[in-house]
């Protein structure tokens, strides 16, 4: 079943149009990855989905309902968790408070159980639960941002360059975790990434963006295996 679908989405910042009619869709349980160089429109695509762009043309569907003109907070409440570029943690709140904010709109009684669970999964966060989020290292903050997104029990997780600013070893760990979570929970993900080889390893399908248009798309394994695509767009 299709969980997220973009139909002819256009958008940008003020007079500058960045996206020129994107069509893509992600099925439930899948990991999709958007690849491309700097300035290709990857981040803008995620912002368009989340209602963080002023003017969005075309249509965005989530779970069969159109969310194109909804507010960011309404989209978040409908089940899309977005880990923005630069992680977007609440720097002067504690790790514990950051995670509780992830679950701020949940009305079920399972929040404490989930907290305990993510502390177990990410022991570094458990050790630092009363520390200010802003004082942690980049890798720890990335884990925190992901855990916070998961605290909302989302149906779709959007990740914007989770590898940005992280050491290669930490990046690998982040992607391993994401892969485990996708397999373990069947959580649907849409990841924007420059590190193509790592991202394609955990993905089912991928799109390569160039100046706001999709130039190549296909199954992740095919993209990774295609010599021409790798040389031309992915750089590995």
């Amino acid at each position: 079943m299709t969980l997220l679908e973009l139909r002819g989405v256009t958008g940008g910042y003020g007079p500058v149009t960045v996206l020129h009619g994107l069509d893509l869709s992600v099925d439930e349980g899948e990991v999709g990855v958007i690849l491309g160089a700097n300035g290709a429109g990857k981040t803008t695509t995620l912002r368009a989905i989340c209602g963080m762009l002023g003017d969005v043309g075309g249509k965005v569907f989530f779970d069969d309902s159109e969310i194109t003109s909804r507010s960011t907070q309404a989209i978040a409440r409908s089940g899309i968790a977005h880990v923005p570029q630069g992680r977007g943690t609440f720097g002067d709140l504690t790790v514990d408070e950051n995670l509780r904010l992830g679950a701020i709109n949940r009305r079920d009684g399972g929040v404490d159980a989930d907290l305990a669970r993510w502390y177990e999964q990410f022991p570094r966060l458990g050790e630092r639960r009363s520390q200010m989020a802003g004082s942690m290292s980049g890798g720890e903050q990335q884990m925190l941002a992901i855990a916070r997104a998961l605290m909302s029990r989302p149906r779709l997780l959007l990740l914007d360059e989770p590898s940005l600013g992280l050491a290669p070893l930490i990046t690998r760990e982040v992607f391993d975790r994401l892969g485990e979570i996708n397999k373990g929970e069947g959580l649907t993900m849409l990841i924007v990434e420059q590190n193509a080889s790592l991202a394609l390893q955990i993905a089912n399908r991928g799109w390569v963006l160039e100046t706001g248009s999709i130039v190549v798309q296909g199954a992740a394994a095919d993209l990774a295996a295609d010599e021409d695509v790798r040389k031309a767009y992915l750089g590995f």
Binding site: T72, Q73, A74, A81, P84, T89, F90, G91, N105
Partner: peptide, 15 residues
């Protein structure tokens, strides 16, 4: 406090 700390992220958690 979340809105004071980071308005953009507050929206992303649904506030």
């Amino acid at each position: 406090r979340a809105v004071a700390s980071n308005p953009e992220s507050s929206k992303l958690v649904g506030i």
